[in-house]
Design a protein around this nucleic acid. Structure first.
Length: 1029
RNA sequence: GGGCGGUUAGCUCAGCGGUAGAGCACUACGUUGACAUCGUAGUGGCCACUGGUUCGAUCCCAGUACCGCCCACCA
């Protein structure tokens, strides 16, 4: 059956995809070739950056996975033992969001909180089973040759165990700790998030100025000076002026800070000021943080709601009063304001406290409790203004009726752009929030990750990525890894209640059990107080043993209490109380229960994806895959996640198994639209790769991706370019079709290289060898663009433009058979070399064009030698193609009709040139449309064409326009003259000869001779032309 | 504010010490034994600017301008 005119991607891609899947072509180790002495094949492995399980394929994925597939296919064909590990990430926040949204579509559904943790998680799993695998199938449409049977998921298989083990190990080594810290809090998801999940965006904001009045009506002289020290303002003040963009946080202020060098406030440092609306006094302190040149130079310090303030508060041991709840509304919990503020005053006066107690104090006055922070802000500004404590402006208003003037006072509001933090998923404003969280002590594990790149154990491309990597790691902050979510790896830490110290109370300070009762039960020395030492272990049994050890020193019967896991702290308190009470009554020691509960938080998704390289290979078991494929070879990923993922994988793998996770990192930019804009739904410029595949085929998209992949560039997506590469596929297809029509494939099997004698055949084989070497080198250097361009110019520019044309006359001559063999060999190589880039069309052509032993995907990558390059053939073909080009060009410029064949006369010819011409006469005549060839003098009115060792003439008397030909000659001569002048100038400079390398001088000399020769020939032609008139 | 990059043909980008390349677009011609998703020929660039190093600079160095990206941030 003859080939169709074009490749049909839609039909072929589905068919071939199935073929590959069924044949498991991407299975780990498929097509691996042992070495000559039976040693195992070298391993080459890539971990796919796991897409979110909620995700669907976008342009970035398409780009990223194309590059991975090219490397994998290339290595697999070369006989490496390859693994491309595929899988998805559970994506804590994103997935929880998707499932919650799904649930909310039907109002009759229970919400997440209503249904509770277990039921909700069941829903998530249900969703995952139904809709979670979309992107995996989309990857298949792209032609990705992953090992599909090894598909991993961060919440399945051994992965959760691996995550737990790492947590436990790191906890045991002191690399993970828990603490009350200021963290980024997402009020929508009601969870902490890491610094990296916060996007700072500039928004229009406002700044207000408040006056905090000095205690006891004190006054001081406020003096402002300019840069020369001249006094510009001098007045008596009873206040200090502070500026803020967050007025509502003033309720929690712990101090006002000024710079120690700021002479304006020197008189009042250490004095107390009244905090408006709050019935509290706070001190004026000095710290390096305030910038004396900004605002008033005085900063209110709200430790619980600002990162800078928090640092100041820590330095000065100021209490950090939390003002908001998990939804970022003003707190409505705890004791009445009067009680709370009384206690706060005591603390300020020196009463001992701790951060847990401070956290219980709600310093939000009743009036603002429960308000959203923005509503509270408006109210607070109004209230402070009413007290006359806003720096304000006075407006003169004229009553239109009476004409009388009166003054109004309005708070002075400075319009100001401020950077506001937004959650990268929730898009709501992030609040700094003081909460208990888990942290990785990154300082302790960052060293090996830095060293590994510094010493080149892991290399990063482009190299600028290394500097970015160093910069971040050298300034790394603790990593907050706990999330107040449900979907994820729950932290393997359990808590119990402390029975060994004074008082039995929960951390709210409520006594849950009468102490007298307790003493009666437990006897002297047995007490219950707050939380006991938590225990971290992979499983409940181990944890129970740890608690049992803790209980052991306690008096009977507590030391034998039955350890039971309960849901949460509140339950534990109730259960323990109940248990003790029951024991008291029955005196039955076997019924004493010691309840423990698990930390409800889950781990940051990046904590688990940070373990992707070892986790997917079966760690902590020392599996054969782990031994073979780890450390992995190359990581290809977007430069946007260098911190999120790359740096963390480096730190984690080095901390856990002491090895780098990968040898090479290739970072690429974001795929943008044709104008360079970020693709986004709101802009409506999102291009769906599946639409592109439908329209142009996966191969076109892939080839375009490869061709765009220059190091460090911005990736602008252009549909026209895709169309161009679709055309490229058609070109290859039709070259094969041409071959088919000429019997090239008859009886063809993948063969040994032929040994042709015709120059064109020898030449094209050399070109193939050059291309192979270029592609190999380019892929070794991760220059996908160079490789793609080399293939494009070989297949289109050499094979199709020239070789196929050369073959046409050769098929009619004595070299017909060897030309068929050569063409088959050349086109085979086109298919093979293109296969990693355009796998579908080449796999489809492969069996059509010969009897093949294997699928193309498993066909050996050629190892042809550069010896195939035949310099003599190269020189000869250069002569031929240049001559053809010149004849065509000359004809076109003097408007010789395309259909008209013309005669060609050689006016001068060296024996060598004559031989060359004769050998290729058929080709030249056909492609340059030559009717007859003779040697002899040029007739009048001919066009002169110089060539190495020859001068040709096209007798076109009557056909050519003399003036046009003269201007053509003149133009070429001008160009030559310019070059000659340049070369002469250089060669004439004695310093050039002295300093330039020999080969450069030689080349320049040779060039000069050739140009001068050409110029002379053209001058002669011009003279002859002049004779004509 | 700190860091990293970019500025080359109308557009998108390669090149990076020996005086400039590709694809697309554009113009003219064209059913020549595969391909109009094509062919042939052509137009188009003081390689951002200013200095320096060099026999020689688009390429190296310094500065300037503009454009990106990342990080931090003035209450």
């Amino acid at each position: 059956m003859p080939m169709e005119k074009t490749f049909n991607p839609t039909e072929a891609e589905a068919r071939i995809s199935t073929l590959w899947t069924n044949a498991k072509v991407g299975a780990a180790g498929a097509n691996a070739k042992p070495g000559p002495n039976g040693e195992p094949a070298q391993a080459f492995s890539i971990m796919i950056p796991p897409p979110n399980v909620t995700g669907s394929l976008h342009m970035g994925h398409a780009f990223n996975n194309t590059l991975q597939d090219i490397l994998i296919r290339w290595h697999r064909m070369r006989g490496f033992d390859t693994l491309w590990q595929v899988g998805t990430d559970h994506a804590g926040i994103a997935t929880q969001m998707v499932v919650e949204r799904e649930l909310a579509r039907d109002k009759s559904n229970a919400t997440r909180r209503e249904m509770g943790r277990d039921a909700f998680l069941a829903k998530v799993w249900e969703w995952k089973e139904q809709s979670g695998g979309t992107i995996i199938n989309q990857l298949k449409r792209l032609g990705a040759s992953c090992d599909w049977d090894r598909e991993a998921f961060t919440m399945s298989g051994n992965f959760p165990d691996a995550v737990t083990k790492v947590f436990v190990d790191m906890y045991t080594k002191g690399l993970i700790y828990r603490g009350k810290r200021l963290v980024n809090w997402d009020p929508h998801f009601e969870t902490a998030i890491s610094d990296l999940e916060v996007e700072n965006t500039e928004v229009a904001g406002h700044m207000w100025h408040f006056k905090y009045i000095l205690e006891g009506g004190q006054k001081y002289e406020y003096i402002e000076k300019d840069a020369e020290g001249t006094v510009t303002l001098r007045e008596m003040r009873d206040y200090i002026s502070i500026a803020t963009t967050r007025p509502e946080t003033m309720l929690g202020d712990g101090a006002v800070a000024v710079h120690p060098s700021d002479t304006r406030y020197a008189p009042i440092v250490g004095k107390m000021v009244h905090l408006p609306l709050c019935d509290r006094l706070i001190p004026i302190i000095t710290d390096d943080y305030p910038d004396p040149t900004f605002g008033s130079g005085a900063v209110k310090i709200t430790g619980a709601h600002d990162f800078n303030d928090y640092a100041v508060a820590k330095r000065h041991t100021l209490p950090c009063y939390r003002l908001m709840d998990t939804r970022a509304q003003m707190r409505a919990d705890g004791a009445p304001y009067a009680d709370a503020v009384k206690r706060a005053r005591d603390i300020a006066a020196g009463s001992p406290t701790d951060e847990n107690e401070v956290d219980t104090l709600n310093l939000v006055p009743e009036k603002y409790r429960g308000l959203d922070r923005i509503a509270a802000r408006t109210q607070i500004i109004a209230d402070i203004n009413a007290l006359g404590l806003c720096v304000s402006t006075l407006h003169t208003e004229i009553d239109p009726e009476t004409g009388s003037e009166h003054l109004t006072r309005e708070p002075y509001v400075e319009a100001k752009n401020i950077m506001q933090p937004f959650g990268d998923r929730s898009r709501v404003v992030i609040e700094p929030m003081l909460t208990d969280q888990w942290f990785v002590d990154t300082q302790k594990i960052v060293g090996p990750a830095l060293d590994a790149v510094r010493t080149g154990q892991t290399r990063i491309l482009p190299q600028s990525g290394e500097r970015t990597y160093y910069h971040w790691l050298e300034n790394i902050e603790p990593w907050c890894i706990s999330r107040q979510l449900w979907w994820g790896h729950q932290i393997p830490v359990w808590y119990g209640l402390d029975l060994t110290t004074d008082g039995f109370s929960d951390d709210e300070g409520d006594n849950a059990l009468d102490e007298v009762e307790l003493l009666t039960i437990l006897g002297d020395g047995g007490y219950i107080d707050r939380e006991a030492r938590p225990h971290c272990a992979a499983d409940l049994t181990t944890v129970s043993e740890a608690f049992r050890d803790d209980l052991a020193p306690l008096p009977h019967p507590l030391n034998t209490a039955r350890i039971t896991e309960v849901a949460d702290r509140a339950t534990a308190v109730a259960v323990l109380a109940q248990s003790l009470a029951t024991y008291n009554l029955t005196q039955d020691s076997t019924h004493l229960t010691y309840p423990i509960w698990r930390d409800p938080d889950v781990l940051d998704t990046w904590f688990s994806s940070g373990l992707w390289p070892i986790g997917t290979l079966g760690w902590p078991d020392n599996t054969p895959e782990l031994q073979r494929y780890f450390p992995t070879s190359t990581l290809i990923t977007g430069s946007d996640i260098i911190f999120f993922w790359v740096a963390r994988m480096m730190m984690m793998q080095l901390a856990v198994v002491g090895q780098v996770p990968f040898r090479q990192v290739y970072l690429h930019g974001l795929v943008r639209d044709a104008k360079g804009k970020k693709m986004s739904k709101s802009l409506g410029n999102v291009v769906d790769p599946l639409d592109i595949i439908d329209e142009y085929g996966a191969d076109a998209l892939r080839f375009a991706n490869a061709a765009m992949a220059s190091l460090g560039g911005v990736l602008k997506f252009d549909k026209q370019r895709i169309a161009g590469y679709r055309n490229f596929g058609t070109k290859l297809w039709n070259a094969c079709r041409f071959a088919e029509m000429n019997g090239v494939w008859d009886g063809h099997t993948t063969s040994e290289p032929p040994h042709p004698t015709a120059t064109a055949n020898r030449w094209i084989m050399g070109e193939a060898a050059k291309t192979l070497a270029e592609v190999n080198q380019a892929l070794t250097d991760y220059r996908f663009d160079t490789a793609a361009n080399a293939l494009y110019s070989f297949v289109w520019g050499k094979v199709c433009d020239w070789y196929v044309e050369f073959a046409k006359p050769l098929f009619d001559g004595p070299h017909a058979q060897e030309t068929r063999q050569t063409m088959a060999w050349v086109l085979d190589h086109c298919m093979i070399l293109l296969h990693p880039f355009t796998p579908f069309i080449t796999e489809d052509l492969w069996p059509t064009t010969g009897t093949r032993a294997k699928l193309l995907v498993h066909t050996d990558w050629p190892t042809i030698s550069l010896d195939l390059i035949d310099p003599e053939a190269d020189r000869e073909m250069a002569f031929v193609t240049t001559l053809i080009d010149e004849i065509r060009s000359a004809r076109a410029q003097v408007h010789v009709p395309v259909g008209l064949k013309t005669d060609l006369i050689a006016t001068a010819l060296t024996p060598e040139a004559r031989a060359t011409y004769t050998r290729n006469a058929a080709i030249i005549h056909r492609l340059a449309r030559v009717a007859t060839f003779t040697e002899g003098p040029a007739p009048k009115g001919a066009i002169t064409l110089p060539a190495p060792g020859a001068t040709f003439a096209l007798p076109l008397q009557g056909l050519i326009d003399i003036d046009e030909e003269k201007s053509r000659l003149q133009k070429t001569m001008d160009k030559l003259a310019k070059e000659i002048a340049g070369l002469k100038g250089r060669l004439g400079n004695p310093l050039f000869a002295a300093s330039a390398p020999e080969d450069v001088v030689e080349e320049a000399t040779a060039n000069l001779t050739a140009r001068e020769d050409e110029h002379a020939k053209l001058r002669a032609a011009l003279t002859r032309l002049a004779d004509l008139i």
